[in-house]
Amino acid sequence: MARVLQPKDREVTAERLLDSSMRNSYDPNVDVDWDAPLVEGKGFLPEERVSLYGTALWDRLTPEQRIELAKHELGSITSVGLWTEIVLMQLLARYAADLDPRSPHMHYALTEIGDETRHAIMFGKGIAKFGIPAYGPPRAVRVPAKLFGAAIGGPAMFASVLVVEETTDRLQRSMLDDDRIQPMIRMINRIHVVEEARHVRYAREELVRGLESLSRPALELHRLVTAVVAHTVMDVMVHPAVYAAVGLDPREARAAARANPHHRESRRWMAEKIVAFLTEVGMIGGPTRRIWRHAHLL
Results as ranks from 00 to 15, higher is better:
T168Q: 13
T168E: 08
T168M: 13
D169T: 12
D169Q: 05
D169C: 01
L171W: 14
L171I: 15
L171C: 08
Q172S: 08
Q172T: 05
S174H: 00
S174I: 08
S174A: 14
M175N: 09
M175G: 10
M175P: 12
L176C: 09
D177W: 14
D177R: 13
D178E: 08
D179G: 13
D179K: 15
R180T: 15
R180F: 12
I181C: 09
Q182C: 05
Q182N: 11
P183W: 12
P183F: 09
M184P: 12
M184S: 14
M187I: 13
M187L: 06
N189Y: 05
I191W: 00
H192D: 00
H192K: 07
H192A: 12
V193S: 00
E195G: 12
E195Y: 05
A197Y: 02
R198C: 01
V200I: 14
R201G: 04
R201I: 15
R201K: 12
Y202S: 03
Y202R: 04
A203E: 06
E205I: 02
E205Y: 01
E205S: 00
E206P: 00
L207C: 03
V208I: 09
R209W: 12
G210P: 06
E212T: 11
E212A: 15
S213H: 04
L214S: 00
S215D: 10
R216F: 10
R216V: 15
A218G: 08
A218D: 07
L219I: 08
E220R: 14
L221K: 10
H222V: 13
L224E: 05
L224I: 09
V225K: 02
A227L: 05
A227D: 09
A227R: 04
V228Q: 04
V228N: 01
V229T: 14
V229I: 15
A230M: 06
H231Y: 07
T232R: 00
